[in-house]
Design a protein around this nucleic acid. Structure first.
Lengths: 341, 341
DNA sequence: CTGAAAGCGCTTACAG
DNA sequence: CTGAAAGCGCTTACAG
């Protein structure tokens, strides 16, 4: 491996000058720089990252730590996020470290990596209320960015969807079409995004002066299997059935479609369906039958902003300027029809 | 951050002794060690990885570099491999760096990471004939392990499926059931695994004294869409149709099932289907209708051996002891029926 | 059994 | 504009 000293010897300049020439400082003669660059190239010199890290204190690496291996139904989510982040960080010259835990020790893992100075910063996903990872990172003043955020918590950098608005848009579409009994198949209650969706749901229903039937709100995971299960319970015989259902994501919606079909119910004639679409590779919501009306926000599009925010946070920007929310786009297709009354 | 020196000062011992005590060398008094460990714990000392790396020459990191973002249909494969490798390396105390390229510069990326001494070793996936990555790594004598291998190439460590045997088992099942016109929907011709599958196919057909019709061998990617397309061409009107088809993976088989159904053909009555099953999250081959007969080899199970081989290679073991092949398990279900003649 | 010294490959004040 | 020196935090011969 060629070192700085090798280049210094070969050119006759000192290591100091070589270092500065190569880093583009302007206190080096143009000619000197040219000569040094030429030799460095000829010798195929590359600065040793580890040495540089030791002196600068920066590791050039950022990490994503998952508590446990994603569930099988989450593979699309994992794929979009991990591939996207890796590319986004690569483009910024940072190495992306992925740690998939075994479910026992996320916090310990974060702490170990923090203490070892191994990473310059973290991406935290699926924050929960009073998330211990976030508290730990905050306590140590370690740079990190959160995908999602706990409402009202302004202590950290985050990139979040406007989940309140997501539900409001969904309710608006349905209410405008005359629906009054609207069900909500929501995600895990522990996620802040789900709380925000719930808030938006209640707010919009109130705005349209529609009653909310608590038995029409179901929590669970984001799998098609959960969609099937939730839909079955919603359509149970003898119940006052909803005329419309809002699904927390496209997999759940696929489950709802399947269940409705099995029950001999037609979408949208007998049941209107609206879902939030993260644009996962498993389900193309435009290819469903009928094409699904969605609030859309591609998960993949979160990678670039997330990387950008983390880089800026590492550079020392205050968190107050690093809190970004984006609104979903409503894509009306054929899964909602006007309720005849 | 607590450093070695801090611990040295606090205990009154030298940095040398502290280092050795903490690393468990046996030339330190039991009492000294105890005292040092106690103080180190109290001070929450963790050796700084970067510094350690600089002196030992080991980075404690290994990497997987993907040329380009996986296609949408590959997300299950990506998921199994990446999550599996991350967990396997974590369990061995190594950080897993994932680099997803933009399709323009895989080799350059490998070279940069090699030259910077950033990684201790690599996992190389989807090797192709005369793979430039492999040649580069070999030329520099850099540790790496390949998932798959080019037949007869004994220059590197690898973990591979016995792809020849995969095809032989598939043909055996079909031929034993009386099938003579057997089609093969194969993967991309550039992969060595595909060449091995082809070899096994020809060998087994010859063993059963069955003619091979070249027009019954179709190459393409491993998506369901390709399965649909290939099946359509195989069943084109006016052709002498195959009675059985072997699919390179379960997604392709799903496409074949769908096409057969659309054509009004019944599996297995009109068409027998056997596929290779990597056990991806997208397709549960036992849940298809009818349940699919497969040669099975869970992709996820490759992660541990791959990590193990790379660690041993990094430790200096010769490649000759690090070349592992495993055989697929035949799982007979209901997609093959006896051909009545 | 313990410690002083050198060094891993770089960067960055500080002089000149 | 250029260089000698110190130092990032550790490990490892080498003495004693």
């Amino acid at each position: 491996m060629t070192t700085l000293r090798d280049v210094a010897k070969a050119t006759g300049f000192s290591a100091t000058t070589v270092s500065r020439a190569l880093r583009g400082f302007d206190d080096v003669t143009e000619e000197t720089r040219r000569r040094i660059e030429e030799v460095a190239r000829a010798l195929n010199y590359r600065p040793h990252q580890v040495a540089r890290k030791l002196v600068t204190g920066r590791s050039g690496m950022v990490g994503l730590i998952l508590a446990e291996p994603p569930k099988a139904f989450e593979h699309g989510h994992f794929f979009e996020l991990v591939a996207g982040l890796s590319m986004a960080f690569s483009a910024r010259g940072l190495d992306f470290v992925l740690h998939v835990g075994d479910g026992t020790d996320t916090l310990a893992t974060h702490e170990r990596l923090v203490a070892r100075g191994a990473l310059d910063g973290f991406v935290v996903t699926f924050p929960v209320a009073d998330d211990p990872r976030i508290e730990m990172l905050l306590a140590r003043d370690y740079p990190f960015v959160v995908h999602g955020h706990h409402r009202g918590d302004a202590r950290y950098a985050y990139f979040d969807d406007d989940n309140r608005d997501v539900s409001e848009q969904a309710v608006d579409v349905l209410a405008a079409a005359g629906h009054r009994r609207v069900a909500l198949i929501a995600g895990p209650a522990i996620w802040p995004s789900v709380a925000a969706r719930l808030e938006g749901f209640h707010a919009a229903m109130a705005r349209w002066q529609l009653p909310v039937d608590p038995s029409l709100i179901v929590h669970g995971d984001t799998s098609a299997a959960h969609g099937v299960e939730a839909c079955h319970s919603l359509l149970a015989p003898g119940r006052d059935r909803p005329t419309a259902v809002i699904c927390c994501n496209s997999l759940v919606a696929a489950g709802v479609y399947e269940t409705a079909r099995r029950r001999g119910l037609s979408v949208p004639r007998d049941l209107a369906v609206v879902a939030h679409d993260d644009v996962l590779p498993q389900v193309r919501t435009d290819a469903l039958d009928p094409p699904l009306t969605v609030t859309r926000l591609a998960l993949r599009d979160a990678a670039e902003p997330l990387a950008d925010l983390l880089v800026r946070r590492i550079a020392g920007e205050p968190v107050s300027t690093l809190q970004v929310t984006r609104k979903a786009e409503l894509v009306e297709r054929n899964s909602v029809s006007r309720l005849r009354d």
